[in-house]
């Protein structure tokens, strides 16, 4: 297993896990405003995700959006609909580069980078390793800040 473990083609992870007929339907079972995991994401990120009005500027400015399976603006919509499960299966939070382009341009001042981090944290805090620090290629040429930042974002 090399360093690049996210070589699966785009739009595959979440789709593969879904059964036929589930992909285009979502049943709201609970008021998303009362969903504990949505609240946890709000608490960790410090962002009121309900203030997003779906202008899309986070997505259009995102340098990594073309590699994502869910667009940044859609992340807010999934949260506003209380669908944290889809976000936990998605690639998007792990493709965000925390470049803050969305954060500084968001018209309502939402820090989407922090929301992405909160979604990652939900998994990392369960001792989940997104990358394996012992199995990194090019260790000799990568600058230390690349490794430090990568492990900080992708390991507990």
């Amino acid at each position: 297993m090399g360093a690049c473990k996210v070589h699966i083609p785009i739009k595959s992870i979440s789709i593969q896990n879904l059964k036929v007929g589930e992909m285009m339907k979502y049943t709201i079972k609970k008021d998303p405003h009362k969903d504990e995991r949505v609240q946890e994401i709000i608490d960790i990120s410090g962002q009121n995700i309900f203030s997003c009005y779906q202008c899309g500027r986070c997505s259009s400015g995102c340098p990594m959006a073309e590699f994502m399976d869910i667009l940044p603006n859609q992340v807010f919509m999934f949260l506003q609909e209380g669908d944290v499960d889809t976000l936990l299966q998605a690639k998007t939070p792990w493709i965000c580069a925390a470049c803050f382009t969305c954060t500084v341009r968001c018209p309502v001042g939402l820090d989407l980078a922090a929301v992405m981090e909160a979604i990652r944290e939900l998994q990392l805090r369960k001792n989940y390793d997104y990358v394996d620090p012992y199995n990194v290629e090019e260790r000799d040429i990568l600058p230390p800040i690349a490794l430090v930042s990568n492990f900080r974002k992708f390991t507990p």
Binding site: C55, G56, R57, C58, S59, S60, C62, N73, T101
Partner: peptide, 19 residues
């Protein structure tokens, strides 16, 4: 439907980066 985030000049054209 989507807000444009960046517009810049490439050659003689203006590249609109939208969603």
């Amino acid at each position: 439907r989507g807000k444009v985030s960046k517009i810049y000049k490439v050659g003689d054209k203006y590249r609109v980066q939208g969603v």
